[in-house]
């Protein structure tokens, strides 16, 4: 395992950072949460952030925290789909395909919610789950897994996730489509 400074990785994969923060901002605005500060990209840790008001609305918190995860994952799959076949399966030398792969993986590897996002959800979810909130019940295992994966970022779990989504996603999709 080799060490590359996080800010450098963020710069190389900047579309993912910007999209992640844009998704946070989008859901804050959607749920009418006050936003105190936004940074879409910077050379530092974290590479971007959205500071918003605290809320007791679990749905709002869930979407603000998990929105980037879902959004970045979906975009990663779509961009990698256009690149996966020519790069991996068809072995076609297509620079545009490599560009889309970089874009897809950049977006995918910044899908993980931050520890702060997950902590907020983790604190509120058990209480809401006891009150019968389906979203809270569903989010508990998801948050737990993401929490662990988030710590595994030091061993490139975020890149691993991007590659897994960018490779396995299209494989599964194309194989399913081929049977149709």
């Amino acid at each position: 395992m080799f060490f590359i400074p996080g800010p450098l990785i963020a710069l190389v994969t900047f579309p993912g950072v910007i999209l992640h923060e844009a998704a946070h901002l989008f859901f804050c605005k959607l749920f009418k949460l006050q936003v105190y500060d936004v940074c879409f990209l910077r050379f530092g840790n974290p590479a971007g952030y959205v500071i918003h008001e605290k809320t007791d609305n679990f749905t709002a918190l869930f979407f603000v925290s998990m929105g980037p995860f879902v959004g970045n994952t979906l975009l990663c799959v779509v961009f990698c789909m256009a690149a996966f076949l020519p790069v991996w399966e068809l072995k076609v030398s297509d620079p545009l395909a490599y560009f889309f792969y970089w874009l897809g993986l950049s977006i995918g590897m910044h899908a993980f919610p931050s520890t702060a996002d997950l902590s907020n959800l983790w604190e509120m979810a058990p209480g809401k789950a006891k009150q019968g909130s389906i979203l809270a019940i569903v989010s508990l295992p998801l948050v737990a897994v993401l929490y662990v994966l988030n710590f595994a970022r030091v061993i490139w779990a975020d890149l691993g996730y991007g590659i897994a989504v960018g490779v396995l996603g299209p494989i599964a999709l194309f194989r399913a489509l081929a049977r149709v």
Binding site: L75, V78, F79, M81, A82, A83, L85, P86, E89, L90, V92, L96, A97, F100, L103, F174, R175, L177, A178
Partner: peptide
Amino acid sequence: LLMVALVHGRKYFHAGRTMYV
């Protein structure tokens, strides 16, 4: 870019599909 990716990838989707079939 998303549109370009999908349009540009159309021929690959076709080739990929025929390969998997």
